[in-house]
């Protein structure tokens, strides 16, 4: 008798769990608001990537065309696959001394794995990850970018 009641309990439990599964998917089916797929090219205007998304490395500039990079090469050393190269130049000061400043911060997006190491390594918080992700171009050369804008200077108080 015990076995029979066990059997019936088994069946009832099975039916109950199956109905539980069906109710979950049924809820999703009848609530289209839950759908998480986005129609990408159509929603370009309103699309906002989430905060921690890593699109590419950028160097923010302020309105006076100043950036925070002093050309210390920490990012170049930190980069695991050599996608950053710092080109520096020497400025001759009035007192006859030479001063090393940044000329070009060259960033090769086609080599970058978006590991965030350069952003972490930067002592002056000059680099940031942007949320831009449309990187398709017609040539690899276009993916090699100079991050500091032409004529930009380093912010005061951050020079080496």
């Amino acid at each position: 008798m015990n076995e029979v009641s066990e059997y019936i309990k088994d069946v009832a439990k099975g039916v109950k769990t199956l109905l539980g599964g069906l109710s979950v998917t049924g809820y999703y089916f009848f609530h289209p608001k839950e759908i998480i797929t986005q129609q990408y090219p159509e929603n370009r205007g309103t699309l906002k990537m989430f905060d921690r998304f890593r699109g590419e490395v950028i160097m923010p500039h302020n309105e006076k065309n100043e950036h925070r990079c002093n050309g210390c090469s920490s990012c170049e050393l930190a980069c695991p696959n050599g996608s950053i190269r710092i080109v520096s130049k020497h400025l001759l000061l009035e007192n006859g001394k030479k001063k090393k400043i940044i000329d070009q911060h060259i960033y090769n997006l086609s080599l970058c794995t978006l590991c965030n190491a350069c952003v972490k390594a930067c002592p002056t918080d000059a680099l940031k990850m942007s949320q831009e992700f449309e990187h398709a171009t017609f040539g690899r050369v276009e993916l090699i970018k100079v991050l500091n804008k032409t004529g930009s200077v380093v912010m005061e108080g951050l020079e080496e």
Binding site: T25, F29, P32, E34, I35, I36, Q39
Partner: peptide
Amino acid sequence: KVCAFFQLRLGPM
């Protein structure tokens, strides 16, 4: 379509 809606997708659009 039904499969997509069960899986919170849109399916062929």
